[in-house]
Simulated scan of single mutants.
Amino acid sequence: MKNLVVLIIALFAFFGCGEEESSRATFKEFGPNEEVALKDVSGKELTLVRKNGGFAIKNDESKVLMIDIFGTFCPPCQKEAPELTKYQVENKDKFTLIGLTHFENVTDEYVLNEFLQKFHAYYFITNNQKINDRLVEQIVRDIEYKHEISLPFKVVLKNGEYQILTDVDSGKYGVKYYLGGIKVTKMKEDLAKIYETK
């Protein structure tokens, strides 16, 4: 009996790894100028376009874009949602925040009720796992991020180019992502620098 349990665990591990490798092997890169139609959990639509090695908002490409890869279950994601909403509202002419649900399989209604409304996350949130997973994989490839993603995970783009940000852990400037809950004051400083650049 013990040998059977060991065999089952070994087979699960073997086939589980094979499926993950297979999905990575079949990943389809986004091509130049490829468009990605997104729909948020409340029905609004927005289109991203592949540009300069990253993504921009179609017909609004000069706006600074923050992509927040998050989970509705994630305490830091819940905690920072109201501050991100406030920043989005105060800077709507030059900044757009898009949330991509990741590592979960929930309905749009669940995201709407249990995250957006409960934690005042009134920004664009898309819950299409097929599209979100492809975008997340492209982002980590684009910035050459070699580790496992932890949530929340954010990138900032301007004109399709990934921007340099302050490392959440070390406080040093020089990474292309925010990993974990952010200090909004530091985020504001980074974004102010980005707005000033051409």
Rank of each mutant, 00 (worst) to 15 (best):
Y87V: 04
Q88R: 01
V89R: 01
N91A: 00
N91C: 00
N91V: 00
N91F: 01
N91D: 03
K92A: 13
D93A: 05
D93G: 00
K94Q: 01
F95I: 01
T96I: 07
L97I: 14
L97A: 06
T101H: 01
H102L: 02
F103D: 09
E104N: 05
T107A: 04
T107R: 04
D108I: 03
E109K: 02
Y110I: 02
Y110G: 00
V111N: 04
V111E: 00
L112I: 05
L112K: 12
L112W: 04
L112H: 12
N113W: 03
N113V: 00
N113Y: 00
E114T: 02
F115P: 00
F115D: 03
L116Q: 10
L116Y: 04
L116V: 15
L116E: 10
L116D: 06
L116M: 13
Q117I: 00
K118Y: 00
F119Q: 07
F119T: 07
H120A: 13
H120S: 13
H120C: 00
A121N: 08
A121K: 05
Y123H: 11
Y123L: 10
F124N: 12
I125M: 14
I125F: 08
I125N: 01
T126M: 10
N127P: 08
N128I: 08
N128R: 11
I131Q: 10
N132H: 06
D133C: 01
D133M: 03
R134C: 05
L135T: 01
V136R: 02
E137I: 04
E137F: 09
E137R: 09
Q138Y: 11
Q138A: 13
Q138P: 01
V140E: 12
V140K: 14
V140W: 07
R141I: 12
I143R: 05
I143A: 08
E144Y: 12
E144G: 13
Y145H: 14
K146R: 15
K146Y: 13
H147M: 15
E148V: 15
I149C: 05
S150D: 14
S150E: 15
L151K: 08
L151D: 02
L151F: 09
L151N: 12
P152K: 11
P152V: 11
P152T: 13
K154P: 03
K154T: 13
V155L: 11
V155D: 02
V155Q: 03
V155C: 10
K158N: 08
N159D: 14
G160D: 09
G160S: 09
G160C: 08
E161G: 12
E161S: 13
Y162V: 07
Y162M: 06
Y162F: 13
Q163H: 03
I164P: 00
I164E: 15
L165D: 05
T166A: 09
T166P: 06
V168L: 06
D169L: 14
D169W: 05
D169E: 14
D169A: 14
S170Q: 06
G171S: 03
G171W: 05
G171P: 09
K172P: 01
K172C: 06
G174K: 08
G174M: 11
V175N: 03
Y177V: 10
Y177P: 05
L179N: 12
L179W: 04
L179Q: 10
G180F: 04
G181F: 06
K183S: 10
K183C: 06
K183G: 05
V184N: 07
K186I: 15
K186Y: 12
M187H: 06
K188Y: 07
K188R: 08
E189V: 05
D190R: 06
D190F: 08
D190T: 06
A192S: 14
K193G: 04
